[in-house]
C-alpha cells in the first residue's frame, strides 16, 4: 500500500542504467606498501539487472562499490554507466553505505530530503520525502534525530534517503546487515517490489548467500583479496521467490562451496 503511494508520488519513470566494469584493478597504499584490492574485475550489467556481490570479508566489495559510485578512481580499467565513463559521483547512482552515516544535526525528514535539497529540487518535491519515509515505515519518526533511532531504524532512514532520489543505479552495501531478521525479511520484499516497479539497476553487497539468492538475478562470487570474479551465477527464478525453493537451496550449496565452505549445510 505504501509502495503504491510511492509509485504515485514519483512520477519520473526511472529506467535502470547499464553498467560496464572493464578490467578494473585497484590498490591502496598502506604505510608505503601497496595493498592490491581488486584485480582485473570485469562485469557487464544490463539495465535493470539485480546483481549481488558475495565475497569474504575484506576482499574489496565496498571498494568496488565506491568505484561504481564514482567516489574513487580505479588504478587501471574503466567503468561506464550507459557508455559514459564514470568520473565522479552522480545522483543517478545512489549508495546506501554499510554504515547508515546519517547527519546527526538533521532530523529524519531532513536527512531523507538531503539529495533533493542538494540538487535544488526540494521545494517542489517535498511529498517525495514523506512517501519515502512512509515506505520504510518511519512516519512516526519524521522529527526524530538520528541519536534517537535504533541501528535498524537508522539503516532504514539511509535506505529512504537513497530511494527518494529515484536513482538509475541503486548501490547497496550490506544495507540490511544491522536489521533484525523480521524487518530484514520485510525490507527484502520491499526492495524486490520496488526494484520491479522502478526498474533501476541494483548492485547489492551481502554476506548472506540466501539473501543474495532471494533478491538477485545474478550472483557474483568474488575471491579473497585481491578480489577477482570467481563465479557468475545466474538465478533464473521468477519473483516472488520462496525461501524453501529447492532450486535456490541447490544454488546456495554451490555458492557456499565456492566461498570455501564445505557443503555440509
Amino acid at each position: 500500500m505504501v509502495a503504491a503511494a510511492l509509485a504515485e508520488a514519483i512520477t519520473y519513470p526511472a529506467v535502470g542504467a547499464e553498467l560496464d566494469i572493464e578490467h578494473v584493478s585497484h590498490a591502496f597504499d598502506i604505510d608505503g606498501a601497496v595493498l592490491p584490492v581488486l584485480e582485473d574485475v570485469s562485469l557487464a550489467i544490463k539495465p535493470g539487472e539485480f546483481v549481488a556481490l558475495l565475497g569474504p570479508s575484506g576482499c574489496g566489495k565496498s571498494t568496488l562499490l565506491r568505484l561504481v559510485a564514482g567516489l574513487e578512481k580505479p588504478r587501471s580499467g574503466v567503468l561506464r554507466e550507459d557508455d559514459i565513463r564514470i568520473n565522479g559521483p552522480h545522483p543517478s547512482r545512489v549508495v546506501v553505505f554499510q554504515d547508515p552515516t546519517l547527519f546527526p544535526w538533521r532530523s529524519v525528514w531532513d536527512n531523507v530530503a538531503l539529495g533533493l535539497e542538494a540538487q535544488g529540487i526540494l521545494k517542489s518535491q517535498r511529498q517525495r520525502v514523506d512517501t519515502a519515509i512512509d515506505l520504510v515505515g518511519l512516519s512516526a519518526f519524521r522529527k526524530a534525530y538520528p541519536h534517537q533511532l535504533s541501528g535498524g531504524m537508522a539503516q532504514r532512514v539511509a535506505l529512504a534517503r537513497a530511494l527518494v532520489n529515484d536513482p538509475k543505479v541503486l548501490i547497496l552495501d550490506e544495507p540490511l546487515g544491522k536489521l533484525d531478521s523480521l524487518t530484514r525479511i520485510t525490507m527484502q520484499a520491499e526492495i524486490v517490489s520496488l526494484w520491479q516497479r522502478k526498474g533501476f539497476t541494483t548492485l547489492l553487497v551481502t554476506h548472506d548467500a540466501e539473501e543474495a539468492l532471494f533478491l538477485a538475478n545474478r550472483v557474483i562470487v568474488l575471491s579473497d583479496r585481491p578480489a577477482r570474479v570467481k563465479a557468475d551465477v545466474k538465478v533464473d527464478r521468477p519473483y516472488p521467490r520462496h525461501r524453501g525453493d529447492p532450486y535456490l537451496a541447490d544454488l546456495r550449496r554451490q555458492i557456499l562451496g565456492l566461498l570455501g565452505l564445505d557443503a555440509t549445510w
Binding site: L71, P91, F103, G115, E117, A118, R161
Partner: peptide, 27 residues
C-alpha cells in the same frame, strides 16, 4: 568531519558549496 559525510552528500548530488555550508559547517 568524517569523510563518510562528504561521500554521502556527493553521491546525492551535492556541489562544493553545499558540502561547505550544509555538511562541513553544521558538523
Amino acid at each position: 568531519v568524517p569523510n563518510a559525510y562528504y561521500d554521502v552528500a556527493r553521491t546525492l548530488g551535492a556541489k562544493p558549496s553545499f558540502l561547505v555550508l550544509k555538511v562541513a559547517i553544521p558538523a
